[in-house]
Structures are given as C-alpha cells and as structure tokens.
C-alpha cells in the first residue's frame, strides 16, 4: 500500500493511535452534520474542540472564513454561515462587553 492509499484508508503509522482514540465528534445540534462533513477533510474535529471554549462567535466566523480564503476549504456562503452559527452556539464564549 502506498502512502496515498494509506492516508485515504486512515491506517498510517499514526492510524493505530487513532484506532484507540477516535477523534471527537462535534456536539449535537443544528449544523453538526455540515460541520462534521466540511471541517474534517484536512484535520480532525480535534482542531475545533482543542480551540474551545475561548473564541467568540465573531472569532469563529473569522476561523471559518480563514479556512476558505487561506487554506482552500470550498463551501458556499450559506454553508459557511450555518457552520459559523453552529460553532457560535456550541463552542464560543460571549464577547467581552
């Protein structure tokens, strides 16, 4: 198996560890499914959970747009808005007054 296949199958050297600890699944709620499909192609949902809970909803919105403009995540505006709303509802702190 070459490494491209290995990556696809998720059985790299690091795959064994992943078998032990499955990456966290996003918290249930409206937008969960979109987030679970759009936000795990390049990294696990670890990246979302790891960065909680300290970003404001505006900062989450900025993260979603950074994924699109800097890192090439492709999704339409309404998908991005739904994901940002989901992250704001489940992983955000209130903005400082």
């Amino acid at each position: 198996m070459n490494w491209r296949q290995a990556v696809a199958a998720g059985v790299l050297a690091v795959g064994c560890a992943q078998a032990v600890a499955a990456p966290p699944s996003p918290r249930p709620g409206s937008g969960e499914e979109l987030t679970g499909t759009q936000c795990v192609a390049c990294h696990t949902a670890d990246y979302i959970v790891m960065n909680s809970v300290f970003l404001t909803s505006a900062q989450w919105q900025a993260e979603v747009s950074r994924m699109r403009t800097v890192f090439g995540a492709s999704m339409d505006d309404s998908t991005a808005a739904a994901i940002a709303a989901y992250l704001a509802a489940h992983y955000a702190v209130a903005a400082a007054p």
Binding site: A17, Q18, A21, H43, T44, D46
Partner: peptide, 20 residues
C-alpha cells in the same frame, strides 16, 4: 478534554494534541 498521552511506532508517551 482531548489531549492524551499516547505511544506511536518508534515513539513513547507523547502528549497527543491532534491525531490528524
């Protein structure tokens, strides 16, 4: 909540922050 000490091939007891 997600960080965990883990072994990988050729690696012993590192703190996993992200798996992939």
């Amino acid at each position: 909540a997600i960080a965990e000490f883990a072994d990988l091939p050729g690696k012993r007891r590192l703190l996993r922050l992200t798996g992939r």
